[in-house]
Design a protein around this nucleic acid. Structure first.
Length: 314
DNA sequence: GTTTGTTTATCGCGCT
DNA sequence: AGCGCGATAAACAAAC
């Protein structure tokens, strides 16, 4: 309920840095990569605050994309016309916000050169890695012949095709404790039924956030037991008619020097493990998508981050 | 011309 | 105080 004489909650600046907003957008896409325009769109769709002063914040956002190593640029194929490249999260960036604040990271993520082939650190390697993952997901869809209804890309929801929830997955972000700028600490997990935050609880707790899908879903959504272990298939590139995966990655950012980042793997673990289904909103549309059998080939596919997890666990 | 991407600079804030 | 991070502005180049 808006305060008299003051802007509505939705007009207030969301308590996220541009980095976290961008990461959310990227994570929300099936391929875990988005062109700049789609990142803009994601943010504007969900955060009315960013429907104004677009020049200002979009400039800032572009600055962040270029400046921060946690974002990697993946070029389009020559036969894939369109402006700009795809942007993805660096597979090794992990949970930069594990301190619970999405305004400020514990430490800036810096790309490092490493012999650790499991977690590519060089931007070019990471780009290749991500593209391969995306291709795998596409192949899985083709192989299973899974029929999916046409949908408007990620705007129908977030991470609908992926059961793995990267720390930046919006479900994870909105589900964990965090501090609002005023200093009040609260959690969206607090009052809930069966471990899930309720719709109106979400919408009142996160008035600045706006998602027709997440907030307005009325259809009952089941959470099959096997759902969480199922890696879904990408939808956007197939259903959005036109946009397909970029192809050959090329190094774009200069590669800084580095040290092995084995420790990064360990630092990811707690977050990954905490990304249990309980932390997901039942309204998340991805749960409706993941109807396929847990035994589908898609199971063998993992996101870059989940690969890290399995590697780290073993 | 517009969009996208890079780079530099400055400022504020929080932490140590 | 010094440092690191985030936000913002601005200039510039390249691609579309």
């Amino acid at each position: 309920m808006p305060r008299p004489g003051r802007n509505t909650y939705s007009d207030q600046k969301p308590p996220y840095s541009y980095i976290s907003l961008t990461a959310m957008a990227i994570q929300s896409s099936p391929e875990k990569m988005l062109p700049l325009s789609e990142i803009y769109k994601f943010i504007m769709d969900r955060f009315p605050y960013y429907r104004e002063n677009t020049q200002r914040w979009q400039n800032s956002l572009r600055h962040n994309l270029s400046f921060n190593d946690c974002f990697i640029k993946i070029p389009r194929r020559p036969d894939q016309p369109g402006k700009g490249s795809f942007w993805a999260l660096h597979p090794s960036c992990g949970d930069m916000f594990e301190n619970g604040s999405f305004l400020r990271r514990r430490k800036r993520f810096k790309v490092t050169i490493t012999s650790d082939h499991l977690a590519p650190s060089k931007p070019a390697d990471a780009a290749l890695y991500l593209q391969q993952q995306a291709k795998l997901r596409l192949s899985a869809l083709a192989a299973t012949g899974t029929h999916l209804p046409p949908m408007n890309g990620y705007n129908l929801g977030v991470s609908q095709s992926s059961s793995f929830k990267h720390p930046f997955a919006i479900e994870n972000i909105i589900a964990r404790d965090y501090k609002i700028p005023g200093g009040l600490a609260f959690t969206t997990m607090q009052p809930m039924s069966a471990g899930y935050p309720l719709h109106n609880q979400l919408s009142t707790t996160w008035p600045h956030m706006y998602s027709s899908t997440v907030m307005d879903t009325t259809a009952p959504i089941s959470m099959p037991n096997g759902e969480y272990s199922t890696y879904g298939v990408p939808l956007k590139s197939i259903c959005q008619g036109g946009q397909t995966l970029p192809a050959i990655p090329v190094p774009i950012k200069p590669t800084p020097t580095s040290v092995p980042r084995i420790s990064a793997l360990h630092s990811h673990l707690p977050t990954f493990l905490s990304s249990s289904p309980q932390s997901l909103s039942p309204t998340s549309p991805q749960t409706a998508i993941s109807q396929s059998s847990p035994a589908t080939p898609g199971n063998s596919l993992t996101s870059p981050a989940s690969v890290l997890l399995s590697v780290a666990v073993h």
